[in-house]
C-alpha cells in the first residue's frame, strides 16, 4: 500500500468516525436543534479553504522565486481544492442559515469575505485557463495567489467594520459557545476534513505532474 493510498484510507476512516459522532453521538443544540450538525461540515470546509489558500500563497511565492514546476503543481492543486471547499463552505453556510435564521444569506462579514475569496481564486484558475502560454498562466496565477492572500485580512476587517459601526453584529455561527461533546464532534470533523484535504491535495498534485509531463518541457 503506497503512502498516498494509506493517507486516503486514514481520511475515509476519520471521516466515518467524524460523521458518526457529528450526526449521531453528539447532542442537538438547545437553540438550533438538529440543524447545528451542519456546523460540523461548514466550519471544517471554511477552515480547509483558508488552509488551501495559505498553501497556495506559499507555493506561489516559492514558484516565482525558484521556478520549479513542482511548486506550480502544488499551487494549482491547492487553488482548485480551495475553490471547491470555499464553494462548499458557502453552500453549507447558506443551508445552515436558512432554517436557523430564516435567510439563505446573512451578509455576515465572514461569509462576504469568503465570497470574495471564492471570486479571487476562481479568477486565478480562469487566468490560468485563458492564458495562451501555460508558463505565463502559471506565473500570473501565482501573482494572484500572492496578492489575494495578502489582501484577505484587510478585506475581512474592512467588511467587519463596515457593518459593526452601523449595526449590531449579527450572531455569527462560530461565535456561539460550544458544549464539550459538540466541541469534540467539531474537532473530529476538522481533523477528518484536514486529512481528506491533504489526501486530495497529494492526489491532485501528482495528477498535475503527470499532465505536465506531456505539455511543458
Amino acid at each position: 500500500m503506497t503512502a498516498q493510498t494509506g493517507l486516503g484510507a486514514v481520511a475515509v476512516l476519520l471521516l466515518g468516525i467524524a460523521a458518526y459522532v457529528s450526526l449521531f453521538a453528539s447532542p442537538p443544540d438547545a437553540f438550533q436543534g438538529e440543524y447545528v450538525r451542519i456546523m460540523y461540515a461548514h466550519v471544517p470546509n471554511a477552515w480547509v479553504a483558508y488552509l488551501a489558500f495559505a498553501i497556495t500563497f506559499a507555493a506561489s511565492v516559492l514558484y516565482l522565486w525558484k521556478r520549479r514546476p513542482a511548486y506550480d503543481h502544488l499551487a494549482h492543486s491547492a487553488t482548485e481544492l480551495g475553490v471547491l471547499f470555499t464553494g462548499l463552505a458557502l453552500a453549507t453556510g447558506s443551508i445552515w442559515g436558512r432554517p436557523v435564521w430564516g435567510t439563505w444569506w446573512t451578509w455576515d462579514a465572514r461569509l462576504v469575505t469568503t465570497a470574495m475569496l471564492f471570486l479571487i481564486y476562481t479568477t486565478a484558475l480562469l487566468v490560468r485557463g485563458l492564458s495562451d502560454d501555460p508558463l505565463r498562466g502559471a506565473r500570473l496565477a501565482a501573482v494572484i495567489g500572492i496578492v489575494g492572500f495578502l489582501d484577505v485580512p484587510i478585506i475581512h476587517y474592512s467588511v467587519v467594520w463596515f457593518r459593526t459601526l452601523h449595526q449590531p453584529a449579527s450572531i455569527a455561527p462560530g461565535s456561539l459557545k460550544i458544549a464539550p461533546p459538540m466541541l469534540l464532534a467539531l474537532m473530529l470533523s476538522l481533523l477528518a476534513f484536514t486529512v481528506l484535504f491533504m489526501y486530495l491535495l497529494r492526489l491532485r498534485t501528482s495528477l498535475a505532474r503527470l499532465e505536465a509531463g506531456g505539455e511543458m518541457r
Partner: peptide, 15 residues
C-alpha cells in the same frame, strides 16, 4: 477579468 480581479481585491478601498 478586470472587474473580477479589481473589485474583490480593492474592496477595502471602496468600503
Amino acid at each position: 477579468l478586470m472587474p473580477l480581479l479589481l473589485l474583490p481585491l480593492a474592496l477595502p478601498v471602496v468600503l
